[in-house]
Amino acid sequence: MDEALPPAPYHELLGITLLEWRDGYAKLGLAAGRQHMNRSGIVHGGVMLSLIDQAGAYAGLYCTVPGNIRRAVTVDLDCRFTGQAGEGQLIAEGRIVTAGNSVFFTRTEVFGPDGKMVAFGAGTHRWRRGSNTPEGVPVDAPVERG
């Protein structure tokens, strides 16, 4: 990732950090705190679903040209909760399962502070125009809507 590019605003809101990134793989971290908990005192399922979505999407968005960017939209997402997590470091690892010309499919696993899997899921993502190649597009290129 080009360090000159700002982080995604949603990542900032949740506190998600990009730990490792290469073509077909992304590893994200989140220091879960009180603000991420539900009323039962465990990490809210929406936080885990967000990690699944973001790590999967980022797996398909690695860009080989500094200063360029790749973009995508999520068209389908599922999640299975396999455990619970409290405060501490969550890790999400997203991988591309397969990719075509305009769509890529991902699988993501989320691990709790103790290293045990707490959720996994799959996503279907559609690249935005020009983002289906590793070179991406200039960061200021217009983004198609709709």
Rank of each mutant, 00 (worst) to 15 (best):
G41C: 10
V43D: 05
V43L: 10
V43P: 13
V43C: 09
V43E: 06
V43T: 13
H44E: 09
G45K: 07
G46C: 06
G46L: 08
G46V: 13
V47E: 07
M48C: 11
M48H: 11
L49V: 15
L49I: 14
I52D: 02
I52T: 05
D53C: 03
Q54G: 12
A55H: 14
A55C: 14
A55N: 13
A55M: 13
G56L: 02
G56E: 01
A57T: 15
A57S: 15
Y58P: 12
Y58S: 07
A59N: 07
L61C: 12
L61H: 07
Y62Q: 06
C63R: 09
T64P: 14
T64D: 14
V65S: 05
P66L: 03
G67M: 10
G67D: 13
N68F: 10
I69C: 05
R70M: 09
R70K: 08
R71H: 10
A72G: 08
A72C: 13
V73F: 07
V73L: 07
T74Q: 05
V75T: 15
L77E: 03
L77G: 06
D78M: 09
D78T: 14
D78F: 05
D78C: 11
C79H: 00
C79V: 15
C79W: 00
C79Y: 00
R80F: 03
R80I: 13
T82D: 05
T82Y: 10
Q84R: 12
Q84L: 14
A85F: 13
G86I: 14
E87F: 04
E87P: 15
E87Q: 09
L90V: 15
L90H: 09
L90F: 13
I91G: 06
I91W: 09
I91C: 10
I91H: 05
A92E: 08
A92W: 10
A92N: 09
A92R: 04
A92V: 15
A92K: 05
A92H: 07
E93M: 04
G94K: 03
R95C: 13
I96T: 09
I96W: 02
V97R: 04
V97D: 11
V97M: 11
V97W: 04
T98E: 04
T98R: 04
A99N: 02
A99V: 09
G100C: 01
N101C: 06
S102C: 00
S102M: 00
V103Y: 06
F104S: 01
F104K: 01
F105E: 00
T106Q: 00
R107S: 11
T108S: 03
E109Q: 04
E109A: 06
E109Y: 09
E109C: 07
V110Y: 06
F111P: 11
F111E: 03
G112E: 00
P113M: 00
P113H: 02
G115M: 04
K116M: 07
V118C: 04
A119K: 01
A119D: 01
A119M: 02
F120K: 06
F120T: 14
G121L: 02
G121F: 06
A122W: 07
T124C: 13
T124G: 12
H125N: 13
H125F: 15
H125E: 09
R126Q: 02
W127S: 01
R129L: 05
R129C: 05
G130A: 02
G130C: 03
G130S: 01
G130Q: 01
S131K: 01
S131Y: 04
T133N: 08
P134R: 02
G136Y: 12
V137Q: 01
V137E: 00
